[in-house]
Amino acid sequence: MVGRSLRQIVWARLRRDKVAMTCLVVLIVYYMIGILGPMVGPSFGLDPYAYDRAAISNRGGAPVLDFGGISAAHPLGVEWGTGRDILSQLLWGLRISLVVATTAAFLSTAIGVIVGIIAGYAGGWTDMVIGRLMDLVLAFPFLLIILALSNVLTDRITDLGVPSGNPSRILYLILVISSFGWPYLARIVRGQVISLREREFVEAAVAMGSGRRRILFTEILPNLWAPILVYATLLLPAYIGTEAALSFLGVGVIPPDTTFGAMLANSVNYFHAVPTYLFIPGTILAVLVVSFNLLGDALRDALDPRVTR
């Protein structure tokens, strides 16, 4: 009898979960579009920056055609006031959202894991100080802080040599979002480490005289990947939402680039006249976030040994 590895078990469970597989496919499609869209788009005539003056009337800047100017050239319509193509904006905007959310999720997870392991393994004063630091970070109204510091810190990042404009702004978003996101995971990891610390295989490693670093990273870390994976999968949709909320409030990428949040913020002025401005980006965003959450959920169930199916 060949024992199946945990990875195989989890994968087998996931494959049986139709919802999870659908979500996985949806997400892969999203990432493909995010990566390939801006590369392939121009050869189909897609350009998020091109102004189509003919699509815009002189009467308040409203699109000439109905439903936000939907036509063969602009399958999802055009932007009020400029005539820029909505489909192209969504494609290019998706890439920015995915880059910000994915990188920030990766960074928070990394910080959370490292800090959590250190706190859990070291214990004592280190644990205490880290614990208070986590309390402090968690107590901050982070949306307010991100808003308030956006200009000053973006300038600092530019001073450090990052190109001004959107590169600096995107980096700011990534750094600041991840610096508020790590404590949750750190707590989980810390708890796990504390319980693992007492287990036989760790004690055995200690008895064998293994170095601390070796114990941490080769004995303990591999046992943590399940909660880490689940948590990271759930962080991603949260960060996509955060990025959208920040763009909605006016922090985030600057023109001519745009993201879901900025498009939705702009829709507020016009959506009674043109509902597609609200529902198209909103739905695409919602599908993305819901898929991530469903997948994360399924992953959690698949990794949970208590769940029997």
């Binding site: 001004s164 023109p255 001519p256 507020v268 002025n269």
Partner: peptide, 19 residues
């Protein structure tokens, strides 16, 4: 660099200036 007081309409205007 083009400075402007931010609101959604002027965000679009900024795009026009840049482009």
């Amino acid at each position: 660099i083009w400075d402007y007081p931010q609101n959604p309409t002027r965000d679009l205007e900024a795009g026009i200036v840049v482009e």
